[in-house]
C-alpha cells in the first residue's frame, strides 16, 4: 500500500516518527519547488539519503565537502573511479591511505544528516514512501537512530501553530514510555531538554515543568513535542481538544462541560445486538 501525501498535512518530523515507530524499510521521496530528496530506511533506522540525482552523491564529493579531500583530489578520484561503487572506492581510498574508515563513516553520516535537517525547513512538498526499496548494495549505508534526528527537527521548528495544534493543553502530565533509559542513551539532548526530562513525572503537569525551568510556552511545547515525536514520553491523560477560541482554523467546536457516562445498558442487550448484526 502507498504512503503518500503532502508536507502541508504532515511535517517531516511526523513522517520520521511514523517510520521509526512502524520500523519501516523503504525509501521516502519528497519533492519541493523543483528539488527532490530521497531517504532510505531499514527497520526504522535512517541509512542513506541524497538530494536530486544520485550521481551527485558520489563518495569523492562527500569527502570533499567534509574536508577530507581537496577539490582537485575529488575531481581526479571521481574521474578515475568510473564504474566503481562507493564501497569499492572507499576500500581503495582506505588502502591507499588517503582516508580512514572512520573518515568515510563520519563524512557519509554527516552528509545524510545535512540532507535530512534541510528537509525540516520544507513546509510543503509531495512525499511518497516506497516500501522495501533500498539503495543498491554498492552504496555505503550508515544506520542512524531516528530519535536524535527527530529531536533535532523539533529544535528547528518555528511554527507556533504546529506546536499549538499538537500540544493544545499544557495542563496534562507526562510519563516515560517503555525503556526510556535505552532510548535516552542514544539521543543527544540539550541541557534544557535534560532539565525537562528530570521533571517528567505523572504528578507534574507540562505547565508546572515549564514554570520550574523558567521556560516560555513556546519553548516547553517545542521540547515536549520533540520528546513525544521521538517516543521518549507519552501523555498520562490524553490532552483535551483545543478550546474553540484558541484554534485558529478549527471554526466552532461544540464542547460539553462534563463527560457523559455511558448509557445504562444490560449485557444481554449488547449480546442481542451482536447476534442481530451477525445475521444481517
Amino acid at each position: 500500500m502507498a504512503l503518500k501525501g503532502n508536507l502541508r498535512d504532515f511535517s517531516t518530523t511526523q513522517l520520521l516518527n511514523l517510520i521509526n515507530l512502524a520500523r519501516k524499510t523503504g525509501t521516502l521521496t519528497i519533492q519541493h519547488s523543483g528539488e527532490s530528496a530521497h531517504m532510505s530506511f531499514r527497520e526504522g533506522k535512517l541509512i542513506y539519503a541524497y538530494m536530486g540525482d544520485n550521481d551527485n552523491n558520489h563518495l569523492a564529493k562527500i569527502l570533499q565537502h567534509s574536508g577530507k579531500l581537496s577539490a582537485e583530489q575529488a575531481q581526479i578520484i571521481q574521474a578515475h573511479a568510473e564504474g566503481k561503487s562507493d564501497k569499492q572506492l572507499g576500500h581503495l581510498l582506505i588502502t591507499a591511505g588517503r582516508v580512514t574508515q572512520n573518515d568515510i563513516i563520519q563524512s557519509v553520516r554527516q552528509n545524510v544528516l545535512d540532507i535530512v535537517y534541510r528537509l525540516f525547513t520544507w513546509v510543503e512538498g509531495v512525499f511518497r514512501f516506497e516500501a522495501n526499496k533500498l539503495p543498491s548494495p554498492g552504496h555505503i549505508t550508515i544506520p542512524i537512530d531516528l530519535e536524535s534526528v527527530i529531536m533535532e527537527g523539533s529544535r528547528r521548528l518555528k511554527e507556533w501553530e504546529v506546536l499549538q495544534e499538537e500540544l493544545p493543553d499544557l495542563d496534562v502530565s507526562l510519563q516515560f514510555t517503555e525503556r526510556p533509559d535505552a532510548r535516552l542513551r542514544n539521543i543527544n539532548l540539550t541541557v534544557e531538554e535534560w532539565r525537562v526530562v528530570s521533571f517528567v513525572n505523572p504528578r507534574n503537569t507540562i505547565r508546572q515543568i515549564a514554570k520550574a525551568n523558567n521556560l516560555s510556552e513556546f519553548e516547553i511545547r517545542r521540547i515536549v513535542y520533540g520528546m513525544l515525536q521521538a517516543g521518549l514520553v507519552e501523555f498520562v491523560d490524553k490532552p483535551k481538544p483545543a478550546p474553540v477560541a484558541e484554534a485558529a482554523d478549527q471554526g466552532r467546536r461544540p464542547k460539553r462541560q462534563a463527560v457523559e457516562q455511558p448509557p445504562d445498558v444490560k449485557r444481554s442487550v449488547v449480546e442481542r445486538l451482536i447476534d442481530r448484526i451477525k445475521s444481517i
Binding site: P239, P241, Q250, R253, K255, R256, E260, Q261, P262
Partner: peptide
C-alpha cells in the same frame, strides 16, 4: 483526530 478527541470529550463510551 480533532473529531475523535471532541467525541472522546463528550462521553466515556467505547
Amino acid at each position: 483526530k480533532r473529531i475523535l478527541e471532541t467525541f472522546e470529550s463528550y462521553a466515556s463510551t467505547p
